[in-house]
Amino acid sequence: MQDATRDSTPDSTPDSAPDSTPDSVPVGEVALDVTETAEALARYRSRAGMWFRVGLTTAAGGVVVELANTARRLEWADLVAEGMGGLALAPLLIGLSALRLGRLMRLRLAARPWTALRAETAPHGPHAAAVVLRDPASGELIPLTLVGLQGRHHAADPRPTGELWWCGDPATGGVLARPGGAELIWARTPGRLTRDRILGAVGRAEDRG
């Protein structure tokens, strides 16, 4: 009776452990097929559109004030119109730049899969923020500069795992994300002088331990 009971009890130990964790790189699909990545891109493009609309609305408001003041030429109204025009410039430029980057991201993410690479943040001082990826096959260091507002640079912070997801071409740029692909930032390949500066800064940081 005891043997029969043991035989009928389901084995609680699975035959094999899962091959990946929730944050592992999906295999056999382009990056945009990852749900978290598609949602992140949609959020990015939505924010870009919001910045552009804010700038456009502010600029339009300045034009309306200027037109309404054509006959009376009130000095304060002229100042308001000029101020609104100046205020519109920053969100317009941010929005246009982000819309362009969103298009580049979509093209990369729709064409290539994510690749998990070892990464570290490069000391950059007053220069553009940068990260350095390590090619797992050759060991080559790939320096990249981040493109985006400073508040979004955390999307390419490899801590605490020391790993980033990469979708792109080191020669032309691509998309970086922390494992999971839930927040995106564009990274571009720097020129030779900037590349040498980044690699030199990383080397000095490693020497200091």
Rank of each mutant, 00 (worst) to 15 (best):
G62W: 15
R72L: 14
G151R: 11
P136R: 01
P22R: 01
F52Q: 11
V64M: 04
V54C: 06
E75K: 08
P179V: 01
L74N: 11
T37Q: 03
D15C: 00
D7R: 08
S12T: 02
A130F: 10
A187E: 11
D169Q: 08
G85P: 05
N69S: 04
V147D: 15
D196V: 00
T115N: 13
L107C: 06
R6V: 03
P18L: 04
R197T: 11
P158R: 01
P158I: 06
A155E: 09
G28W: 09
G95L: 13
V202M: 14
G203L: 06
A137R: 14
R134Q: 09
I142C: 01
L184G: 03
A88S: 12
R72H: 15
V65S: 01
L41D: 05
R100Q: 08
E39G: 07
W166C: 10
S16A: 08
G209S: 08
T115Y: 14
P126W: 12
D23G: 03
R208K: 03
G102A: 06
P113D: 09
S8I: 02
R47M: 00
G49P: 07
V64H: 05
G62C: 14
L92V: 13
G162Y: 12
L117R: 10
S16W: 01
P91K: 02
S8G: 05
E120Q: 14
Y44T: 08
S97P: 00
R134F: 02
A205Y: 01
A31L: 11
R208G: 02
G62K: 13
L164R: 05
L117F: 13
D135H: 03
G200M: 07
L144A: 00
R47D: 03
E39R: 07
G83F: 12
S46A: 12
V30W: 11
G203D: 12
R178I: 09
E39V: 00
G148S: 10
V131C: 04
G191I: 03
A88M: 09
P160S: 13
G181L: 06
G55F: 04
A110M: 01
T189M: 08
A98M: 14
T21C: 02
L146P: 03
A38Y: 02
T70H: 11
G180T: 01
G28N: 08
Q2F: 02
L79V: 15
L67S: 13
S24G: 02
P113W: 02
G139S: 06
A177E: 08
D207L: 06
Q150P: 09
T13Q: 00
R118H: 10
V147G: 07
L99Y: 04
G200V: 10
G62P: 13
W186I: 02
G85H: 10
P190L: 13
A17C: 01
L184Q: 09
A31Q: 04
G85C: 12
A122T: 05
C167A: 12
L89V: 15
